[in-house]
Nucleic acid binder design. Structure first.
Lengths: 196, 196
DNA sequence: CGCAACGTAGCACGACCGTACTACCATGAG
DNA sequence: CTCATGGTAGTACGGTCGTGCTACGTTGCG
């Protein structure tokens, strides 16, 4: 038997090369050729692991989801103070280059979903993850008696999710219209108004 | 002198055809050929008005901006009650098919800006417009004594803008995760908390 | 009427696209 | 050692891409 490669790791490398192409030249510049060149392999070799362009785009989008969920899983859900809650929530915000890239790529690919059906199913997953993240934070805090009484947790989850997405959106783009600290401050003020 | 056409109107028609292609097949499907076919003209004819692909994309993006600003201008800035303010603000939210399409296209094109420099300069304009819209609403209400005292209007503008973008984001996509009424209710609650 | 202009259509070119297919190489089980 | 096997590279094909260019109506001023 010849040398075996880890297909999953390979897929991730190629997906990362795809990220780079998207970030530097836009989704329109993605082709099996450009991505293979970016990854430093031949087209034939790329297609041995990712046979079609749709599969390549799907792998790139799946990588966004994997990275995000891995980050969430690594963070302990230890919520005793408001600062803990803020830290947990800011984990879902694009506050560093890595997460900014991740979200930019996700947005770009989501916009292309109309032309590539395999992307459509991957579109909603991170959104659901963020919502359930908001829900966990609020429910945990509420259960610990950290929040005011009489809050509609469902409505508060939606509101927090909306706020988080708005912040994320403003944190993106070359001209950062919102500083990291300002985003954190807005989140803190929002939570403070609901704190016990 | 032969028949003259209105170049601006023509550009708008072609840009609209470009919108349709983007909405149905993604930005990746945009080419001078597909858009010309969608508009029902020949490639040569299209290129007589929009000589390059970059120009075509830019025209499509500019149309987003024009439509939005036209809508804003049509709405009178008559702010006497909270309902007026809500109405003014919801004007900037994608609450009908037209505005949803408009924003979807804008997002898709903004994501492609990396590969088409002419789009980059058009990216920030609507964002600025929305921010100044928020500012006008808040300042007008504050000047009329409708808002609580001691509000930091600058920070409130940013917060309102973030909230509006978050709502807009949630109003998009095939699976509408937020109903029109829910969005309006969130906006109303936000303003109510700041009302005199 | 005639002709200069403007709009329209279409072809040609070189480049790049996605994909299929084949030849080659390195490897490790037997 | 040998050889089947999985990985890599390269070529080829039919098609579409952006763009330059030319030829052809069509129109309304002089």
């Amino acid at each position: 038997m010849p040398r075996l490669i880890d297909h999953d790791q390979r897929r991730a490398e190629l997906a990362e090369a795809c990220w780079r192409v998207i970030a530097e030249r836009g989704v329109g510049a993605v082709s099996v050729r450009t991505v293979a060149a970016e990854a430093g392999v031949s087209v034939g070799s790329l297609r041995h692991v990712l046979p079609t362009k749709g599969g390549l785009l799907a792998a790139a989008m799946r990588l966004c989801l994997e990275r995000a969920t891995a980050r969430f899983a690594a963070h302990s859900p230890d919520l005793r103070t408001r600062a803990d809650a803020i830290n947990w929530l800011t984990e879902m915000l694009p506050l560093d280059a890595e997460r900014r890239l991740e979200m930019t790529i996700h947005l770009a690919l989501a916009a292309e979903a109309a032309g590539h059906p395999e992307l459509a199913s991957l579109r909603a997953a991170p959104d659901d993850a963020v919502r359930s993240g908001c829900e966990v934070v609020l429910r945990t805090c509420a259960a610990a008696g950290l929040l005011r009484d009489g809050l509609d947790l469902d409505a508060e989850t939606t509101l927090l999710h909306v706020l988080l997405d708005g912040l994320a959106f403003h944190l993106l783009g070359p001209a950062a219209r919102l500083s990291d600290d300002a985003a954190r401050a807005i989140l803190d003020a929002h939570l403070a108004a609901r704190w016990a």
